[in-house]
């Protein structure tokens, strides 16, 4: 045993010289961090990491896309655009709303108690506002789709009901597309709270770009969709550049390590890449589809990257 031999040496040194000059035995894991103002308490994290699993960032993506699709659908309906885009937008909104609920319930520690979310309404809790918004959005977008399909297949006078539901779905859809930014922004996690007033806009652009891209992949080629896609991708490029250039120590998880890399991949795929494809692609269908796929992937990766960065930020919060 190396430890025993070293101890013998130390004892001999002590006997012969009366003192021990050399260091003793290095304990496993040494040197241990000290409790100091700079290190904090032995370098241990002060904050708790977010406990959310994959369902939450997946919900940010799906719910955001559904919300933005509802808005696009109503805008298309008002402008008198072709009926197919209105129907497909309602499909995306309704399907997104239907997928969102199980995602959120699945992440709960006690899924069987999901109805407790609707036990109270608390305006100071973005989670509470979100739960009520999703309940309203899910119902309204399902109703708008149901009315649309009924209108097509029967003679029932459901157009007005469908439009009213679509309007409610779009109104709550704007909240769906933005509130998740408030949800993570208004927390104690430094990388999130530092960007509390950027995240809602960032997520709104991400939601719009994914909704537009999904409609494009379903075969719609309206110039309006292209214009919205360009606007969203341009804003995402701007947000990406801002993250790179601004925000001190708190923003480090957004630029360094695994979370920083993920943020960058998401940013490239939802910002400059589809923007260039849309601007330079001309009338090429392939360029348009590539831009749509890139936007969707970028939007999804971006949400996972922000949650990942939140975990890293809680582990290494600046003192």
């Amino acid at each position: 045993m190396i430890g025993e031999r070293r101890l013998e040496e130390i004892r001999r040194e002590a006997e012969q010289t009366g003192r021990v000059a050399a260091a003793g035995i290095r304990a496993a894991g040494a040197p241990f961090p000290k409790a100091t103002a700079e290190n904090g308490y032995y370098g241990l994290p002060l904050l708790k990491e977010p406990v959310w699993t994959w369902e939450i960032p997946a919900y940010f993506f799906v719910g955001g896309m559904a919300g933005a699709a509802a808005v696009v659908g109503v805008a298309a309906r008002i402008s008198g655009a072709n009926e197919e885009i209105v129907r497909d937008a309602r499909w995306i909104a309704a399907a997104g709303g239907a997928i969102s609920a199980p995602l959120l319930v699945g992440d709960l520690g006690r899924p069987e108690r999901f109805l407790n979310m609707l036990r109270v309404f608390k305006v100071q809790s973005p989670m509470s506002v979100g739960a009520w918004t999703l309940a309203a959005f899910g119902s309204a977008s399902a109703a708008s789709l149901f009315a649309e399909e009924m209108r097509r297949q029967t003679d029932l006078p459901v157009t007005a009901v469908g439009d009213a539901a679509a309007l409610l779905s779009a109104a709550t859809g704007t909240v769906m597309a933005t509130y998740t930014g408030v949800l993570i922004g208004a927390t104690v996690i430094p990388a999130w709270s530092k960007h509390a007033s950027t995240l809602p806009l960032h997520f709104a652009a991400s939601a719009l770009s994914s909704a537009v891209s999904m409609l494009e992949l379903l075969g719609h080629e309206e110039p309006a969709l292209k214009a919205l896609g360009i606007a969203a991708n341009a804003f995402e490029t701007f947000v990406g550049a801002r993250i790179e250039m601004r925000g001190g120590k708190e923003s480090e998880p957004l630029r360094h390590g695994a979370s920083g890399t993920t943020i960058r991949i998401g940013g490239l795929l939802s910002g400059p890449l589809p923007l260039l494809l849309r601007l330079l692609g001309g009338r090429s269908k392939r360029a348009r589809r590539a831009a749509a796929v890139s936007s969707l992937a970028g939007s999804l990766i971006t949400r996972f990257a922000w949650v990942k960065a939140g975990r890293a930020s809680a582990r290494n919060a600046p003192r």
Partner: peptide
Amino acid sequence: LLQSSWTAAAAGAAALVVGSLLAFALGGRK
């Protein structure tokens, strides 16, 4: 942080609505 964050959310929501309406009003019909 709620006030500043919700203000940004409201701005994002408004941009979504106005942007979508404008895009379709100007370019929806070919």
